[in-house]
Amino acid sequence: MEQTCRKMWSPLLMALCLILVAEVEMERVTAQVVGYYDLTCPNAEKIVTEVVTDAFQRNPTIAPALLRLLFHDCFVQGCDASILLDNPGGEKTAPPNQSLRGFEVIDDAKQALEAACPGIVSCADIVALAARDAVVLTGGPTWEVPTGRMDGRFSDALSAIVNIPSPTMPTPVLTQMFLANGLSPDEMITLSGAHTIGGAHCSSFSNRLSMNDPTLDEAYAEELLAACPTPNSDNVVPLDPTTPLTFDNNFFTNLAAGRGLLTSDQDLYNNLGSEFLSIMDSNNEDLWRFKFAAAMVRLSTVNAKIGDDGEVRKNCRAVN
């Protein structure tokens, strides 16, 4: 388009044309704004919400799965839907990601969006919107999702292994991983409250049972031993034993009672650097819900790709 401008005879018209091109280019690469699809696909969010709601009504456990997808996507090369790619040796094949679910929900949303407005809505935006809807459907707060992310073209298992936090990670290491993604220690603690819904396989916390972890409530430890007869059992245990399908701050209350399931979670409360914030989130649910919504906006924009750095995939499982 710029070359077309330069072929114009009038220098004044050429200058005006170049200004217009610059404005168009600026609009094209602008990302992460609320209402990004208002003109190009005005029903985009509604379509995603309808698909997620339908999936949730059929199986409520899909909510934590969709929320987890966003976390695992954003911590590896940013929020670019690289977690969805099916390429050999991609992120899906990494051990931390082999228990991920919800891909078919993203596929359904993408199919519906392609029917309504082809080639407009990115898979990365669908993942971010679906995570928000999953929280709302389980009774959590809502927030306006900035959209306009592009989809990444590269997915690598090693990157996932290196960058996704493990359930046994101590707080100082976890803090550094969040800081590397531009997220503060308070945001890290606030976002850990996402574990108020969902569950974990026995292998994720069996280390605490085998070593008779003194930070684990004795009665709770007995419950876990009964649920996990062997360390590598495929059984899934709720992350929040009190209200496992309700998005509330009982996660933090459980930590105070020694009923945090994962080492990384319980260490948030036991670590002197984060104990105060954990207690605050436990005592003031309204404050935590407000902070969680704000932190999710921050998380969902981590290293997001814009413009030519990515693309809008036609199929979320493969590059164009």
Rank of each mutant, 00 (worst) to 15 (best):
P60C: 03
D73Y: 08
Q32P: 00
T301P: 14
M280F: 03
M177R: 05
A55Q: 05
T171G: 02
W9L: 00
A221Q: 12
E2A: 05
P11W: 00
L262H: 07
C316R: 10
L20H: 08
D308V: 15
L209M: 04
G139H: 06
G310W: 07
G78Y: 14
V236Y: 15
A22V: 07
F252Y: 06
F71E: 11
L84C: 15
S233Q: 14
F75H: 09
P141M: 06
N207Y: 07
D38V: 13
G90F: 13
I19G: 08
V237S: 13
I83W: 09
R259V: 12
A55C: 02
L209S: 03
G148T: 02
S82V: 12
T53M: 03
L183S: 09
A63D: 00
M296R: 10
E25I: 03
P146Y: 15
L13C: 08
E311C: 13
P238Y: 13
I106L: 03
L179N: 01
L84S: 15
P238Q: 13
I120H: 13
N163Y: 12
F56S: 06
V105W: 04
F290P: 00
V29W: 00
P95E: 01
F205P: 03
A109P: 06
A116T: 05
Q111A: 10
A160T: 06
D186W: 12
G90Y: 10
G199D: 08
I19N: 10
A65C: 05
Q3G: 07
F290D: 01
L262N: 13
N163H: 09
E311T: 15
G193I: 12
N207I: 11
V312M: 08
L262R: 02
I279L: 04
A130V: 04
N163Q: 12
F205H: 07
C228I: 04
F276Y: 11
V29S: 00
N315T: 13
V51Q: 05
P244Y: 10
V48D: 00
I197V: 12
V51H: 01
S300Q: 06
L268F: 06
S233P: 14
I120Y: 09
I62A: 04
P165F: 11
R68G: 01
P231S: 11
V127H: 04
A31E: 00
N235G: 14
I279Q: 02
L84M: 15
P118H: 09
R153S: 10
W288F: 07
S99G: 08
D309Q: 15
A124M: 08
D217Y: 12
T4F: 05
Q176M: 05
T93I: 06
T40M: 15
S184V: 15
L158W: 06
A200T: 03
K314W: 13
P241Y: 15
T30Q: 00
A226H: 00
G78E: 13
S282R: 06
S300L: 04
L209R: 08
T196W: 10
G182S: 02
A109W: 02
A115L: 01
N59M: 03
I126N: 02
V52F: 04
F56D: 10
E275Y: 11
L18P: 07
D309L: 12
L39A: 10
R68I: 02
T49C: 01
W288Q: 07
A304T: 14
L277I: 09
C123Y: 08
D156H: 12
I83V: 09
F103V: 10
